[in-house]
Design a protein around this nucleic acid. Structure first.
Lengths: 160, 160
DNA sequence: TAAGATTGAGCCGTCAATCTTC
DNA sequence: GAAGATTGACGGCTCAATCTTA
Protein backbone atom coordinates (compact mmCIF):
# COMPACT_ATOMS: atom_id res chain seq x y z
CA UNK A 1 0.00 0.00 0.00
CA UNK A 2 1.16 3.53 -0.58
CA UNK A 3 0.19 5.11 2.76
CA UNK A 4 0.52 2.43 5.42
CA UNK A 5 -1.29 2.86 8.72
CA UNK A 6 0.88 3.37 11.77
CA UNK A 7 1.81 0.14 13.48
CA UNK A 8 0.75 1.17 16.95
CA UNK A 9 -1.79 3.58 18.43
CA UNK A 10 -0.89 7.24 18.75
CA UNK A 11 -2.20 10.53 20.12
CA UNK A 12 -5.36 10.04 22.14
CA UNK A 13 -5.88 6.56 20.77
CA UNK A 14 -4.14 4.60 23.56
CA UNK A 15 -6.22 6.27 26.26
CA UNK A 16 -9.42 5.90 24.26
CA UNK A 17 -8.68 2.24 23.59
CA UNK A 18 -7.80 1.40 27.17
CA UNK A 19 -10.93 3.17 28.36
CA UNK A 20 -13.08 1.35 25.85
CA UNK A 21 -11.57 -2.02 26.75
CA UNK A 22 -12.13 -1.46 30.45
CA UNK A 23 -15.72 -0.44 29.74
CA UNK A 24 -16.24 -3.58 27.65
CA UNK A 25 -14.98 -5.66 30.58
CA UNK A 26 -16.76 -3.98 33.47
CA UNK A 27 -20.16 -2.87 32.15
CA UNK A 28 -21.44 -6.27 30.95
CA UNK A 29 -20.28 -7.83 34.21
CA UNK A 30 -22.19 -5.21 36.19
CA UNK A 31 -25.35 -5.70 34.12
CA UNK A 32 -25.14 -9.47 34.45
CA UNK A 33 -24.69 -9.31 38.20
CA UNK A 34 -27.67 -7.02 38.73
CA UNK A 35 -30.03 -8.95 36.46
CA UNK A 36 -28.96 -12.31 37.80
CA UNK A 37 -29.74 -11.15 41.30
CA UNK A 38 -33.01 -9.50 40.31
CA UNK A 39 -34.45 -11.98 37.81
CA UNK A 40 -32.06 -14.91 37.71
CA UNK A 41 -30.99 -14.31 34.11
CA UNK A 42 -28.03 -12.80 32.30
CA UNK A 43 -28.19 -9.57 30.33
CA UNK A 44 -28.14 -11.56 27.08
CA UNK A 45 -31.23 -13.49 28.17
CA UNK A 46 -32.92 -10.28 29.30
CA UNK A 47 -32.35 -8.86 25.82
CA UNK A 48 -34.09 -11.84 24.28
CA UNK A 49 -37.17 -11.22 26.43
CA UNK A 50 -37.03 -7.47 25.83
CA UNK A 51 -36.73 -7.75 22.05
CA UNK A 52 -39.59 -10.24 21.87
CA UNK A 53 -41.69 -7.95 24.05
CA UNK A 54 -41.31 -5.10 21.58
CA UNK A 55 -42.03 -7.17 18.47
CA UNK A 56 -45.47 -7.57 16.84
CA UNK A 57 -47.24 -10.57 18.37
CA UNK A 58 -44.43 -10.70 20.93
CA UNK A 59 -42.69 -13.07 18.53
CA UNK A 60 -39.75 -13.13 16.15
CA UNK A 61 -38.02 -15.62 13.87
CA UNK A 62 -34.92 -17.11 15.43
CA UNK A 63 -32.66 -15.61 12.77
CA UNK A 64 -34.16 -12.15 13.23
CA UNK A 65 -33.99 -12.44 17.01
CA UNK A 66 -30.33 -13.41 16.76
CA UNK A 67 -29.67 -10.35 14.64
CA UNK A 68 -31.38 -7.82 16.90
CA UNK A 69 -29.82 -9.26 20.08
CA UNK A 70 -26.37 -9.36 18.48
CA UNK A 71 -25.82 -13.05 19.24
CA UNK A 72 -24.83 -16.07 17.16
CA UNK A 73 -27.45 -18.58 16.00
CA UNK A 74 -26.14 -21.33 18.29
CA UNK A 75 -26.00 -19.03 21.28
CA UNK A 76 -29.55 -17.88 20.68
CA UNK A 77 -30.79 -21.43 20.23
CA UNK A 78 -29.37 -22.39 23.63
CA UNK A 79 -30.73 -19.23 25.24
CA UNK A 80 -34.24 -19.87 23.92
CA UNK A 81 -34.05 -23.50 25.09
CA UNK A 82 -33.15 -22.34 28.56
CA UNK A 83 -35.90 -19.71 28.64
CA UNK A 84 -38.34 -22.27 27.27
CA UNK A 85 -37.60 -24.65 30.14
CA UNK A 86 -38.62 -21.88 32.53
CA UNK A 87 -41.84 -21.33 30.61
CA UNK A 88 -40.95 -17.79 29.55
CA UNK A 89 -40.64 -18.40 25.80
CA UNK A 90 -42.21 -20.89 23.39
CA UNK A 91 -41.08 -22.20 20.03
CA UNK A 92 -43.49 -22.49 17.11
CA UNK A 93 -43.05 -23.58 13.52
CA UNK A 94 -42.78 -20.71 11.07
CA UNK A 95 -45.86 -20.75 8.84
CA UNK A 96 -44.10 -19.13 5.87
CA UNK A 97 -40.87 -21.14 5.86
CA UNK A 98 -40.68 -24.77 6.83
CA UNK A 99 -37.06 -24.34 7.89
CA UNK A 100 -37.84 -21.52 10.29
CA UNK A 101 -38.74 -21.39 13.95
CA UNK A 102 -40.53 -18.56 15.74
CA UNK A 103 -39.86 -17.65 19.36
CA UNK A 104 -42.88 -16.32 21.28
CA UNK A 105 -42.83 -14.54 24.64
CA UNK A 106 -45.29 -16.17 27.05
CA UNK A 107 -47.39 -14.26 29.59
CA UNK A 108 -45.11 -15.59 32.31
CA UNK A 109 -42.09 -14.32 30.40
CA UNK A 110 -43.71 -10.94 29.93
CA UNK A 111 -44.42 -10.76 33.65
CA UNK A 112 -40.77 -11.47 34.46
CA UNK A 113 -39.70 -8.71 32.11
CA UNK A 114 -42.17 -6.20 33.56
CA UNK A 115 -41.01 -7.05 37.04
CA UNK A 116 -37.29 -6.80 36.26
CA UNK A 117 -37.32 -3.76 34.00
CA UNK A 118 -37.53 -0.94 36.59
CA UNK A 119 -34.55 -2.04 38.65
CA UNK A 120 -32.62 -2.81 35.49
CA UNK A 121 -33.25 0.68 34.14
CA UNK A 122 -32.27 2.11 37.49
CA UNK A 123 -28.99 0.21 37.26
CA UNK A 124 -28.39 1.51 33.73
CA UNK A 125 -28.96 5.04 35.00
CA UNK A 126 -26.72 4.56 37.97
CA UNK A 127 -23.91 2.99 35.95
CA UNK A 128 -24.11 5.10 32.80
CA UNK A 129 -26.44 8.05 32.40
CA UNK A 130 -25.98 9.53 35.86
CA UNK A 131 -22.41 10.28 34.81
CA UNK A 132 -23.23 11.98 31.50
CA UNK A 133 -24.80 15.33 30.65
CA UNK A 134 -27.20 15.65 27.66
CA UNK A 135 -24.42 16.61 25.26
CA UNK A 136 -22.40 13.60 26.28
CA UNK A 137 -25.40 11.34 25.76
CA UNK A 138 -25.68 12.67 22.23
CA UNK A 139 -21.95 12.11 21.72
CA UNK A 140 -22.31 8.53 22.95
CA UNK A 141 -25.16 7.87 20.53
CA UNK A 142 -23.12 9.36 17.70
CA UNK A 143 -19.96 7.44 18.57
CA UNK A 144 -21.63 4.06 18.88
CA UNK A 145 -23.36 4.66 15.54
CA UNK A 146 -19.95 5.03 13.92
CA UNK A 147 -18.39 2.11 15.77
CA UNK A 148 -21.21 -0.18 14.71
CA UNK A 149 -20.34 0.50 11.08
CA UNK A 150 -17.14 -1.45 11.57
CA UNK A 151 -18.77 -4.12 13.71
CA UNK A 152 -21.98 -5.02 11.94
CA UNK A 153 -20.24 -5.74 8.66
CA UNK A 154 -18.21 -8.90 9.17
CA UNK A 155 -16.82 -8.89 5.68
CA UNK A 156 -14.36 -6.15 4.96
CA UNK A 157 -13.31 -4.79 1.64
CA UNK A 158 -9.96 -6.17 0.44
CA UNK A 159 -6.93 -3.97 0.90
CA UNK A 160 -6.32 -3.36 -2.81
CA UNK B 1 -36.35 11.19 47.47
CA UNK B 2 -37.61 14.60 46.47
CA UNK B 3 -36.81 14.52 42.72
CA UNK B 4 -37.13 10.93 41.52
CA UNK B 5 -35.35 9.86 38.38
CA UNK B 6 -37.53 9.06 35.37
CA UNK B 7 -38.51 5.41 35.22
CA UNK B 8 -37.47 4.84 31.63
CA UNK B 9 -34.89 6.36 29.29
CA UNK B 10 -35.72 9.55 27.44
CA UNK B 11 -34.37 11.91 24.80
CA UNK B 12 -31.21 10.54 23.20
CA UNK B 13 -30.74 7.96 25.92
CA UNK B 14 -32.54 5.05 24.24
CA UNK B 15 -30.46 5.36 21.09
CA UNK B 16 -27.25 5.81 23.05
CA UNK B 17 -28.04 2.81 25.23
CA UNK B 18 -28.96 0.54 22.35
CA UNK B 19 -25.82 1.57 20.52
CA UNK B 20 -23.67 0.94 23.57
CA UNK B 21 -25.26 -2.46 24.20
CA UNK B 22 -24.70 -3.54 20.61
CA UNK B 23 -21.09 -2.39 20.84
CA UNK B 24 -20.63 -4.35 24.06
CA UNK B 25 -21.95 -7.44 22.31
CA UNK B 26 -20.13 -7.20 18.99
CA UNK B 27 -16.71 -5.70 19.71
CA UNK B 28 -15.48 -8.28 22.27
CA UNK B 29 -16.69 -11.06 19.97
CA UNK B 30 -14.73 -9.57 17.08
CA UNK B 31 -11.57 -9.19 19.17
CA UNK B 32 -11.85 -12.74 20.48
CA UNK B 33 -12.30 -14.17 17.01
CA UNK B 34 -9.28 -12.40 15.59
CA UNK B 35 -6.94 -13.21 18.48
CA UNK B 36 -8.09 -16.80 18.69
CA UNK B 37 -7.29 -17.26 15.03
CA UNK B 38 -3.98 -15.40 15.23
CA UNK B 39 -2.58 -16.61 18.57
CA UNK B 40 -5.03 -19.17 19.89
CA UNK B 41 -6.08 -17.09 22.89
CA UNK B 42 -9.01 -14.89 23.86
CA UNK B 43 -8.80 -11.15 24.26
CA UNK B 44 -8.87 -11.56 28.05
CA UNK B 45 -5.82 -13.81 27.91
CA UNK B 46 -4.08 -11.41 25.56
CA UNK B 47 -4.62 -8.64 28.08
CA UNK B 48 -2.94 -10.72 30.77
CA UNK B 49 0.16 -11.12 28.60
CA UNK B 50 0.08 -7.46 27.55
CA UNK B 51 -0.22 -6.11 31.08
CA UNK B 52 2.58 -8.35 32.33
CA UNK B 53 4.74 -7.22 29.42
CA UNK B 54 4.39 -3.59 30.44
CA UNK B 55 5.06 -4.16 34.13
CA UNK B 56 8.48 -3.90 35.81
CA UNK B 57 10.19 -7.29 35.73
CA UNK B 58 7.40 -8.44 33.43
CA UNK B 59 5.62 -9.54 36.59
CA UNK B 60 2.64 -8.55 38.74
CA UNK B 61 0.88 -9.79 41.85
CA UNK B 62 -2.24 -11.77 41.03
CA UNK B 63 -4.47 -9.25 42.77
CA UNK B 64 -2.92 -6.32 40.91
CA UNK B 65 -3.08 -8.19 37.60
CA UNK B 66 -6.76 -8.90 38.19
CA UNK B 67 -7.37 -5.22 38.82
CA UNK B 68 -5.61 -3.91 35.71
CA UNK B 69 -7.17 -6.52 33.43
CA UNK B 70 -10.63 -5.90 34.87
CA UNK B 71 -11.23 -9.55 35.76
CA UNK B 72 -12.29 -11.37 38.91
CA UNK B 73 -9.74 -13.22 41.06
CA UNK B 74 -11.09 -16.64 40.12
CA UNK B 75 -11.17 -15.82 36.43
CA UNK B 76 -7.60 -14.58 36.54
CA UNK B 77 -6.44 -17.64 38.46
CA UNK B 78 -7.85 -19.91 35.77
CA UNK B 79 -6.44 -17.75 32.97
CA UNK B 80 -2.95 -17.84 34.49
CA UNK B 81 -3.21 -21.62 34.97
CA UNK B 82 -4.06 -22.03 31.31
CA UNK B 83 -1.26 -19.72 30.17
CA UNK B 84 1.12 -21.50 32.52
CA UNK B 85 0.34 -24.86 30.92
CA UNK B 86 1.42 -23.39 27.59
CA UNK B 87 4.63 -22.12 29.13
CA UNK B 88 3.80 -18.45 28.58
CA UNK B 89 3.48 -17.42 32.22
CA UNK B 90 4.99 -18.67 35.49
CA UNK B 91 3.84 -18.42 39.08
CA UNK B 92 6.22 -17.49 41.88
CA UNK B 93 5.75 -16.95 45.57
CA UNK B 94 5.52 -13.30 46.59
CA UNK B 95 8.60 -12.43 48.66
CA UNK B 96 6.85 -9.70 50.64
CA UNK B 97 3.58 -11.45 51.46
CA UNK B 98 3.33 -15.14 52.12
CA UNK B 99 -0.28 -15.16 50.94
CA UNK B 100 0.56 -13.63 47.58
CA UNK B 101 1.47 -15.06 44.22
CA UNK B 102 3.33 -13.30 41.42
CA UNK B 103 2.70 -14.00 37.74
CA UNK B 104 5.73 -13.65 35.48
CA UNK B 105 5.74 -13.46 31.69
CA UNK B 106 8.17 -16.00 30.20
CA UNK B 107 10.31 -15.38 27.13
CA UNK B 108 8.01 -17.69 25.19
CA UNK B 109 5.01 -15.68 26.37
CA UNK B 110 6.68 -12.47 25.36
CA UNK B 111 7.42 -13.89 21.93
CA UNK B 112 3.76 -14.81 21.47
CA UNK B 113 2.74 -11.29 22.41
CA UNK B 114 5.24 -9.68 20.04
CA UNK B 115 4.08 -11.91 17.24
CA UNK B 116 0.36 -11.30 17.81
CA UNK B 117 0.44 -7.58 18.55
CA UNK B 118 0.70 -6.14 15.03
CA UNK B 119 -2.29 -7.98 13.61
CA UNK B 120 -4.25 -7.28 16.76
CA UNK B 121 -3.55 -3.57 16.50
CA UNK B 122 -4.50 -3.70 12.84
CA UNK B 123 -7.82 -5.26 13.84
CA UNK B 124 -8.39 -2.56 16.48
CA UNK B 125 -7.76 0.08 13.81
CA UNK B 126 -10.02 -1.61 11.32
CA UNK B 127 -12.85 -2.10 13.80
CA UNK B 128 -12.60 1.15 15.75
CA UNK B 129 -10.22 3.94 14.85
CA UNK B 130 -10.64 3.81 11.09
CA UNK B 131 -14.20 5.00 11.70
CA UNK B 132 -13.34 7.95 13.97
CA UNK B 133 -11.69 11.30 13.31
CA UNK B 134 -9.28 12.82 15.88
CA UNK B 135 -12.03 14.76 17.62
CA UNK B 136 -14.12 11.65 17.98
CA UNK B 137 -11.17 9.77 19.43
CA UNK B 138 -10.84 12.47 22.08
CA UNK B 139 -14.58 12.26 22.73
CA UNK B 140 -14.30 8.50 23.15
CA UNK B 141 -11.46 8.88 25.64
CA UNK B 142 -13.44 11.47 27.57
CA UNK B 143 -16.65 9.43 27.57
CA UNK B 144 -15.04 6.21 28.75
CA UNK B 145 -13.28 8.13 31.52
CA UNK B 146 -16.69 9.23 32.81
CA UNK B 147 -18.31 5.84 32.39
CA UNK B 148 -15.53 4.16 34.34
CA UNK B 149 -16.37 6.35 37.33
CA UNK B 150 -19.61 4.42 37.69
CA UNK B 151 -18.03 1.08 36.91
CA UNK B 152 -14.83 0.97 38.91
CA UNK B 153 -16.57 1.79 42.17
CA UNK B 154 -18.67 -1.24 43.05
CA UNK B 155 -20.02 0.33 46.19
CA UNK B 156 -22.39 3.20 45.64
CA UNK B 157 -23.38 5.89 48.05
CA UNK B 158 -26.78 5.32 49.68
CA UNK B 159 -29.73 7.18 48.24
CA UNK B 160 -30.33 9.46 51.22
C1' DT C 1 -26.33 -26.21 -3.15
C1' DA C 2 -27.56 -22.95 0.25
C1' DA C 3 -30.13 -21.22 4.33
C1' DG C 4 -32.32 -21.87 9.02
C1' DA C 5 -31.72 -24.02 13.11
C1' DT C 6 -29.93 -27.23 16.38
C1' DT C 7 -26.51 -30.20 18.86
C1' DG C 8 -21.92 -32.43 20.82
C1' DA C 9 -17.57 -31.47 22.62
C1' DG C 10 -14.83 -28.62 25.00
C1' DC C 11 -13.26 -24.15 26.90
C1' DC C 12 -14.40 -20.13 29.75
C1' DG C 13 -16.66 -17.78 33.52
C1' DT C 14 -19.26 -17.25 37.96
C1' DC C 15 -20.54 -18.39 42.66
C1' DA C 16 -19.61 -20.30 46.89
C1' DA C 17 -16.56 -22.84 49.68
C1' DT C 18 -11.82 -23.64 51.13
C1' DC C 19 -7.01 -23.14 52.42
C1' DT C 20 -3.22 -20.34 53.89
C1' DT C 21 -1.16 -16.37 55.77
C1' DC C 22 -1.69 -11.80 57.84
C1' DG D 1 -11.42 -12.48 61.71
C1' DA D 2 -9.94 -10.64 57.09
C1' DA D 3 -7.27 -10.78 52.74
C1' DG D 4 -4.99 -13.33 48.80
C1' DA D 5 -5.59 -17.02 46.03
C1' DT D 6 -7.42 -21.30 44.35
C1' DT D 7 -10.86 -25.03 43.32
C1' DG D 8 -15.50 -27.78 42.55
C1' DA D 9 -19.71 -27.53 40.52
C1' DC D 10 -22.35 -25.78 37.11
C1' DG D 11 -24.12 -22.83 33.42
C1' DG D 12 -23.01 -20.28 29.03
C1' DC D 13 -20.52 -19.77 24.64
C1' DT D 14 -17.89 -21.14 20.35
C1' DC D 15 -16.69 -24.12 16.69
C1' DA D 16 -17.70 -27.56 13.63
C1' DA D 17 -20.82 -30.98 12.22
C1' DT D 18 -25.60 -32.27 11.27
C1' DC D 19 -30.39 -32.28 9.93
C1' DT D 20 -34.18 -30.37 7.39
C1' DT D 21 -36.36 -27.63 3.98
C1' DA D 22 -35.99 -24.21 -0.01
Amino acid sequence: VSTPEPAWLRGDEPEAWLGLVRTLLLLPAALDRQLREEAGISHAYYLVLAMLSGAPGRSLRMSELARVTGTSPSRLSRAVSSLQERGWVERRACPEDGRGQVAVLTDAGHAVLVQAAPTHVAEVRRRVFDHLDPGEVRALASLTRKLLVGLEADEVAPVG
